[in-house]
Simulated assay, not measured.
Amino acid sequence: MRYAIYFAPAPDTGLTRAANHWLGRDAFTGEILDAPSQLSLPQEQWRELVAEPQRYGFHATLKAPFNLREGRTEVELIDAFEAFAASTEPFEIPQAIIGQLGPFFALVPHSPHPPLQEFAAKVVEAFEPFRAPLSDADIARRKPERLSEAQRTNLHTWGYPYVMDEFRFHMTLTGPVEAEFAPRVHDELSPRFSAHDGAPLPIDGLALFIERNRGEPFTIHRWQPLGVPQHQRKMLP
């Protein structure tokens, strides 16, 4: 079993509903959904586009998937997760847009936002004591020869190349898209996320995802609002 600490909006938000509808899967329930309505793309092409982000569920990576370190337990991880969420104040990204990170389409910040970078770094550091060291096979899968020196250092130090100064917040919506096909994909995504494209994005919750066996879909094991102590959470509607 692997765990991951991701940002995910609450299950009842418009963004979550739009993303689940597009990806064809709800990571909160694990339910596979029908293909989105009014697709301008062939369904088979859509399935190929969303296959990888569908497996992971709608999220932004903070602490990448990890096995538990020997001697640590899931109960300890959940306790730390709940304590971290309760002690961390929510904030917002001033403007999020549908953009591209390399060949992938994602919801990304319009411009760098230092509080977001600081938040992501704190998550990486806080849960590092729970992460088992990477195996040689895990390191090889990251193709370290293709990484920059800073990314290789991050991989060996934190278990993931794209943290700290290399972190780029993104909520993935597609797999890789060939350049000539990108405008059509953007036209498909734009109306589906029009309410969120160019709008502020509240960072107000944290999700603990699990992958029960390698290659299986990730599901949300726990979701907690930020800045809400446990005794107050029990009183939330």
Rank of each mutant, 00 (worst) to 15 (best):
Glu70Lys: 09
Ala150Asn: 10
Arg17Ser: 14
Pro237His: 12
Phe28Trp: 02
Ala199Phe: 02
Phe58Thr: 01
Glu188Ser: 05
Ser194Thr: 10
Ala120Arg: 01
Gly102Met: 04
His113Phe: 15
His196Asn: 03
Pro202Thr: 07
Pro237Leu: 13
Leu68Ile: 04
Phe81Glu: 09
Gly30Cys: 13
Ala10Met: 07
His113Gly: 09
Gln151Ala: 13
Val124Leu: 01
Pro94Lys: 09
Ser194Ile: 14
Phe28Leu: 01
Pro129Trp: 12
Ala51Leu: 12
Ala80Arg: 14
Gln100Thr: 11
Ala126Ile: 03
Ala8Glu: 00
Asn154Pro: 09
Glu166Leu: 09
Phe167Ser: 05
Pro202Ile: 08
Arg131Val: 08
Gly57Thr: 05
Pro65Cys: 04
Gln232Trp: 13
Leu206His: 02
Arg2Phe: 04
Gly215Asp: 08
Tyr56Gln: 02
Glu145Cys: 07
Ile78Tyr: 07
Arg212Cys: 11
Asn67Ser: 14
Leu155Pro: 06
Phe181Arg: 12
Phe104Leu: 14
Pro144Ala: 06
Phe105Lys: 02
Gly71His: 06
Glu44Gln: 14
Asp197Gly: 02
Leu206Met: 03
Trp158Ser: 06
Gly102Glu: 07
Ala140Phe: 11
Lys234Glu: 15
Gln232Thr: 08
Thr157Glu: 15
Ala85Ser: 09
Pro133Trp: 04
Thr153Phe: 13
His231Trp: 11
Ala150Lys: 04
Ile98Met: 03
Phe218Lys: 09
Gln45Glu: 15
Phe7Arg: 06
Gly30Pro: 11
Thr219Trp: 14
Ile32Tyr: 13
Asn20Ser: 10
Pro9Phe: 02
Arg222Leu: 02
Asp26Met: 01
Phe127Ile: 03
Arg146Gln: 14
Glu211Tyr: 08
Met171Ser: 08
Glu70Asn: 10
Ser87Pro: 05
Arg214Met: 12
Asp26Leu: 06
Glu70Val: 11
Ile139Asp: 08
Leu236Lys: 10
Thr172Pro: 04
Leu15Gln: 03
Glu31His: 10
Gly102Ile: 06
Ala96Lys: 05
Ala120Val: 04
Ala106Phe: 05
Pro202His: 10
Gly99Ile: 00
Arg222His: 15
Met171Ile: 06
Glu118Gly: 11
Gln151His: 01
